[in-house]
Structures are given as C-alpha cells and as structure tokens.
C-alpha cells in the first residue's frame, strides 16, 4: 500500500504548512489540502460514503473559515520568542507522546486484518434485516439509529448556538 504512505506524507507536510504559515488565508488553503488528501485516503481504503461526506464537509469548513478570515485578516500575531528552550520543550513533549503512542500501537491488530466481532453480525443480517444493500447506511439508519439521532441533536444545538452568538438584534451594547 505505497500510495497510502505517499498521500499520508503529503497530508503531514500540508498540515505542518497549515500550522506554520504566516498568512491566515494560506493556512486555510493548506488545511484544504489536508482534507482533500483525506478524501483520497478514504477512497483508497474502500469507504466511498465517507469520501463523499468528507468532500462536502471539507468544502463547507473552507467556506466558513475563509469567510471568517478574509475580511478580518490582520498580520498582527505576536510572535513567540523561538529560542533553544522552546524548541527543546516542543521536541521533548512530541517525542514522549510519539514514543508512548508507538508502544500502545503495538497492541492493536495488524493493519489489513481487523477483528470484526460486531460487524460480522451486521454484514450477515443487513440485507434480510433492513433491506438496505449499503451496509454502512444500514448500520447508520437501522442498527444504530439512536446514534444518528444524537448526531442530529448535536448538529442542531451547535447551529442554534452559532446563530445565538452571531445575532444582530436583541444584543446588549
């Protein structure tokens, strides 16, 4: 799976650029590169539904972030004093995190051979149980419909919160 490695490396480079670039608009565009790399990864990992949803969501996030930055962008960020102690702290914490993360990863099932205890039931019973040919939508809308209900509740609440924060009328001066 060499192409997965290549796209993941591209995503890491784009993520680093998105964090480190000076202009906010350039950062947002680099973030779009990360998201599009993720879409390609989902396609290669045999998850077409996820690729479609990620494409739409990534474009919406770009629109929201560009709307927030394009008018308000002012390069007035106070720079951190980047000396050796700063660099040492970043490398130390990153190294410790990656070391223990690597130790934890060795306990997982190997890549390419998942332990499908619950999902095998879903795959075997999707067609006669729900009538849906797409097993992902069968899980999403039938086997685990309460999760989807919770998702819709969260989405509704967050949008109500955003509208309440951004409203123009009835706001105290």
């Amino acid at each position: 799976m060499i192409e997965l490695h290549i796209i993941l490396l591209f995503m890491i480079v784009a993520a680093f650029l998105a964090i480190e670039m000076r202009g906010l608009l350039s950062s947002v565009i680099a973030l779009g590169a990360v998201g599009m790399g993720l879409v390609l990864q989902f396609l290669l990992l045999r998850a077409p539904d996820l690729a479609i949803v990620q494409l739409v969501v990534e474009i919406l996030i770009l629109i929201i972030l560009i709307r927030a930055t394009v008018k308000l962008d002012r390069p007035s960020e106070s720079r951190l004093r980047e000396n050796w102690a700063y660099l040492f702290c970043v490398l130390l914490f990153g190294g410790v995190f990656l070391f223990f993360g690597y130790r934890a990863l060795t306990g997982l099932p190997v890549f390419g051979d998942p332990a499908m205890r619950v999902s095998s039931y879903y795959i075997e019973n999707a067609l006669e149980g729900t009538g849906a040919a797409n097993i992902v939508s069968a899980i999403l809308l039938d086997f685990r419909a309460y999760d989807t209900l919770g998702e819709v509740t969260i989405l509704f609440t967050s949008i109500v919160g955003a509208i309440a924060v951004l409203r123009k009328i009835g706001r105290k001066k």
Binding site: S119, V136, L140, D147, E151
Partner: peptide, 9 residues
C-alpha cells in the same frame, strides 16, 4: 463497516 458508519457521524 462499523467504523465507517461511526466516522460518518
């Protein structure tokens, strides 16, 4: 398919 459905959420 189970992680795919949950990640969609």
């Amino acid at each position: 398919p189970l992680p795919q459905a949950m990640i969609l959420t």
